[in-house]
Design a protein around this nucleic acid. Structure first.
Lengths: 405, 405
DNA sequence: AGCACTTTGTTAATACACTTGACAAAGTAG
DNA sequence: CTACTTTGTCAAGTGTATTAACAAAGTGCT
């Protein structure tokens, strides 16, 4: 009720807004959408929709596909995005991995690549690696940079999207206020969007993954660090300075292990990648039988995760403990935010219920009943692609809307 | 960018939306607003605004007031809400107090009343008391129920505003799914809105208090319980089932005191009204010199608060400890929500910096720097009226928009 | 097979609501 | 007093929707 009217402030003319709304409705509709359904969603008449859809068909961005079996009466014609209209890329520069995805306008992945990467190497070196990876991936498809209409980029720090840079990023030394977007746009010769990796994760899961179409959604990325992307009432929520969702430094245990941020007992220090490794090492040093003791010095969280999936009891206990701590932290998020769904992503989360069940138990035990019962906690459907697919969604937003204008 | 177009779904014709947006802009503009400024905010021309404003003037909801001193050129005419056009009421049914406010259409308080109250007495008894208080207050103004255009009501539980009832409220026995709004509408013969008290608190502070006009705002109410209202991107944020903002049962210390909810170490058990009393009693029993030892059995949090304001060292220490615990909890909120401002309300918070300074210290120490520096932590400007004034805002929303239709 | 009915999509006339361009109104400055 | 500026209004023109009617593509029944 409050200010609902003020929110409608068209900076473009009415038809422009309606056309772009229709394009987004078509794009995010699983299985396409008919003109009649568009009219309903847009609160317009069928006649108005005819005009708008005809404009979009002229741009070749959408096309008529099959008709649906009619219940009774004329079968509706289904409209979908024309996937052959062009290509975009998503570039996920993570703390320790680089993922590059090339997709068509229908958001279908044409090729992808992941490689080791250190965001801490600084902007010039990281951009050089991302560029080389992108060009290499494109060449496997017989494509070049000029075939990309737009590119979405993700980084592990708080971004000011409008400025195309990060602000005081905790784990990105040398990147503070570096003109990331402008640099990439010059290098790649097409429009680039820049977002925080967890934001893109929630976007990817909302658009095409486990949280598809949900209204209030949190995406938790469990990696070296732990971050959350928040999707509130149909929008990414960034907060006042772009740092919303910082869950990794939530105090879980005041007397817990020292965290990289300087405090004690942060979630990251209890359930992040390093914490999982440390828990495993402690168990090894106490003489527990586990396949992990083969090489404790080079242990990774993924080693623990894989061993757990293979039935290793110690690894399973470590994951359960980390899951429990994450569940304790999620109590706050669930109580404050009251989401429909929490999607847990990152490599460790792919073990599924071994990690998720302790999370669910802790949330159910510790959250208020109303919020606990309202939330579904699930693993990512996009696997390690959540952020990369979110970057693809951002790139498509730029590309499609630009062509439609 | 994402779905920005889809958000514009006018369920009314365009002029209706613009007229109501103009009304809200006028209403929430401190000191009124000119037609030229309206045109800017609405992205319309001066000519279009003339037509809209003339319609609103015909309803007698707004009027032209003084002109402002011109910098150079014609002085703009200031438009304001016509405060004499009618009256509304705000009824705040809290856990232990009932507050009733009668205000005019300009949101100026004409009369108010507060009395002891127990929400746990159940809906019939509570509604009876609220009704009597409202009628009594109106009679001091020579008014009756028929003089009210609408009424806003607040309760301390998770509300589904569209249903006009509360859902599984933790501290409101007997109220679950009771048709509160429908009952009040029949009893009072005018439209009634129903909202959670913390939601109304944040609304009141946003509209007329310390958070006026802020984009991302949290209001913390420290009473017997502790709750938060969240205001995100221009809207109250309720969550999936209306329970967003439940901060009182956030785990601060796993080994802390038992909370009424059954868990240990909840914020409410460490910093709520009962916790403050318990901390004071512990100090008394350990032999500390304090004016509070005069009558420990009937001690209230307000007694502690007032003694602290008078310089009592023990009382100040108790407040500082409660403030510290609240600050620890606010770390999570600040990290997750990255607000511009946190407004702390409720009786205890009126002692000001004695309570706020420990909060600020804990937030600054424990939150990520970006979020900690972006947030201003302040006490409520509306004092104990935050929720009641939020209820007035809701009532005005109903009344003004109905007349404008 | 033909007809009645239903739902979907289109067309052209009409209605609505804004913009444009010009002018009036109310100030300041020289 | 004149020139200039900003604010507010008016009427003609423009943009974009709605309405009413019809065409199109099915199902179901006789």
């Amino acid at each position: 009720m409050l200010s609902a009217y003020i929110r409608y402030l068209p900076s473009q003319n009415v038809k422009y807004v309606n056309k772009h709304a229709a394009l987004d409705l078509i794009r995010f509709a699983p299985g396409g959408i008919s003109r009649v359904a568009l009219a309903q969603r847009l609160a317009l008449t069928r006649a108005a929709v005819t005009s708008i859809v005809n404009d979009l068909i002229k741009t070749d961005l959408i096309r008529e596909t099959k008709t649906r079996a009619p219940s009774n009466g004329r079968p509706p014609i289904i409209l979908e995005i024309n996937e052959e209209r062009g290509c975009v890329a998503g570039v996920d520069m993570g703390a320790s991995h680089l993922t590059v995805i090339v997709a068509n306008f229908g958001a279908q992945v044409l090729a992808e690549k992941e490689q080791p990467f250190k965001i801490a190497d600084g902007p010039e070196e990281c951009i050089r690696q991302a560029d080389a990876a992108l060009r290499s991936l494109l060449s496997t498809l017989g494509l070049g940079l000029s075939d990309l209409s737009a590119i979405g980029a993700g980084v592990p720090g708080p971004t000011i999207a409008s400025e195309g840079m990060v602000l005081a990023p905790p784990i990105m030394p040398g990147w503070d206020r570096f003109p990331i977007r402008d640099t990439l746009e010059k290098l790649w010769g097409c429009p680039v969007s820049l977002n925080n990796d967890a934001e893109l994760g929630v976007l990817g899961e909302w658009a095409y993954g486990a949280g598809r179409g949900e209204q209030n959604l949190a995406y938790i990325k469990v990696g070296t660090g732990i971050g959350a992307g928040l999707f509130i009432d149909g929008q990414i929520y960034r907060g006042a300075t772009g740092s919303a969702g910082e869950i990794g430094h939530m105090t879980i245990d005041e007397n817990g292990p020292l965290c990289a941020c300087g405090n004690r007992g942060c979630l990251e220090a209890l359930a992040g990648g390093r914490a999982i490794v440390n828990l495993a090492r402690t168990a090894i040093q106490s003489g527990r039988r586990t396949e992990l003791s083969a090489n404790p010095e080079s242990l990774t969280a993924m080693d623990v995760s894989n061993a757990a999936a293979r039935g290793d009891l110690v690894a399973q206990e470590v994951l359960a403990e980390a899951g429990n701590q994450l569940g304790i932290a999620l109590t706050s998020l669930v109580n404050l935010f009251n989401p429909n769904i929490v999607v847990v992503g990152g490599g460790v989360a792919q073990t599924g219920d071994l990690f998720l069940e302790p999370i669910r138990k802790a949330v159910l035990k510790r959250s208020l009943p109303a919020a606990a019962h309202a939330v579904r906690i699930t693993t990512s459907l996009l696997g390690k692609r959540s952020t990369g697919m979110g970057a693809v969604v951002q790139a498509l937003s730029i590309a499609l809307h630009k062509i439609a204008s």
